Measured scan of single mutants.
Amino acid sequence: TLFEALYDYEARTEDDLSFHKGEKFQILNSSEGDWWEVRSLTTGETGYIPSPYLAPV
């Protein structure tokens, strides 16, 4: 399942991933609570992002 960003987000740590509203992601790991490890389909980068900022496509 692909997810889309509902809002912009600016990374706060080196493990976070900055992204823009509308960017699409592949979920790599969603078992860590509200922070999911994802791969951006736009940039190819991986990192953690807050799951409340995402919605299924």
Rank of each mutant, 00 (worst) to 15 (best):
T1S: 11
T1D: 12
T1I: 13
T1W: 13
L2C: 08
L2I: 15
L2P: 04
L2G: 01
L2A: 05
F3N: 00
F3C: 06
F3W: 15
E4N: 03
E4D: 02
A5W: 01
A5K: 00
A5I: 03
A5P: 00
A5D: 00
L6A: 04
L6F: 04
L6R: 07
L6W: 05
L6G: 03
L6Q: 07
Y7E: 09
Y7K: 09
Y7G: 07
Y7R: 11
Y7A: 10
D8P: 06
D8W: 05
D8L: 03
D8Y: 04
Y9N: 02
Y9H: 07
Y9M: 04
Y9E: 01
Y9W: 08
E10D: 10
E10S: 11
E10G: 06
E10A: 11
A11S: 13
A11M: 04
A11R: 09
A11Y: 04
R12S: 12
R12K: 13
R12Y: 09
R12A: 12
R12L: 12
R12T: 13
T13Y: 15
T13K: 13
T13R: 14
E14G: 13
E14F: 10
D15K: 15
D15C: 15
D16G: 15
D16N: 11
D16E: 15
D16M: 14
D16P: 02
D16H: 15
L17S: 02
L17H: 03
L17N: 02
S18E: 03
S18N: 06
S18H: 06
S18R: 04
S18D: 04
S18G: 07
F19Y: 06
F19P: 00
H20A: 11
H20N: 10
H20W: 09
H20F: 13
K21G: 02
K21V: 08
K21M: 08
K21Q: 08
K21A: 10
K21T: 07
G22K: 03
G22L: 02
G22N: 04
G22V: 00
G22C: 04
E23M: 07
E23T: 07
E23I: 04
E23K: 00
E23D: 15
E23N: 06
K24S: 05
K24N: 05
K24V: 14
K24Y: 12
K24H: 09
F25N: 00
F25I: 01
F25E: 00
F25Q: 00
F25R: 00
F25A: 00
F25H: 00
Q26G: 02
Q26A: 09
Q26R: 08
Q26M: 14
Q26I: 15
Q26L: 14
I27Y: 08
I27V: 14
I27L: 13
I27N: 01
I27E: 00
I27S: 02
I27H: 02
L28F: 03
L28H: 02
L28M: 07
L28Y: 03
L28Q: 02
L28S: 01
N29H: 07
N29W: 07
N29E: 06
N29V: 07
N29I: 05
N29K: 08
N29C: 08
S30V: 12
S30F: 13
S30I: 10
S30K: 13
S30Q: 12
S30R: 12
S31T: 12
S31A: 11
S31L: 10
S31H: 09
S31Q: 11
S31M: 11
S31V: 10
E32P: 09
E32K: 14
E32T: 12
E32G: 14
E32R: 15
E32Q: 14
E32I: 12
G33V: 10
G33L: 10
G33Y: 09
G33R: 12
G33Q: 11
G33I: 10
G33D: 11
D34N: 09
D34T: 12
D34E: 12
D34F: 15
D34P: 09
D34I: 14
W35N: 07
W35K: 10
W35R: 15
W35G: 03
W35H: 08
W35S: 07
W36H: 01
W36T: 03
W36A: 01
W36E: 01
W36P: 00
E37W: 15
E37F: 15
V38P: 00
V38G: 06
V38I: 02
V38E: 01
V38H: 00
V38C: 09
V38N: 00
V38Y: 03
R39D: 00
R39G: 01
R39E: 05
R39P: 00
R39M: 12
R39S: 04
S40I: 06
S40A: 07
L41I: 10
L41Q: 06
L41Y: 06
L41P: 02
L41G: 01
L41D: 03
T42E: 14
T42S: 13
T42M: 10
T42N: 10
T42A: 12
T43D: 02
T43M: 01
T43C: 03
T43R: 04
G44Y: 06
G44D: 05
E45S: 10
E45D: 09
E45M: 14
E45H: 12
T46M: 08
T46E: 09
T46H: 09
G47Y: 06
G47V: 03
G47S: 03
G47M: 07
G47C: 04
G47P: 00
G47A: 04
Y48D: 01
Y48N: 06
Y48E: 01
Y48C: 09
Y48P: 01
Y48F: 13
Y48G: 02
Y48Q: 06
I49W: 00
I49L: 06
I49A: 14
I49M: 04
P50W: 15
P50K: 12
P50V: 03
P50C: 14
P50R: 13
S51R: 12
S51W: 15
S51C: 10
S51L: 05
P52L: 15
P52K: 15
Y53W: 10
Y53L: 11
Y53A: 14
L54M: 07
A55W: 09
A55P: 03
A55N: 07
A55D: 05
P56F: 07
P56S: 07
P56A: 09
P56K: 06
P56V: 08
V57T: 08
V57A: 08
V57I: 13
V57C: 08
V57L: 11
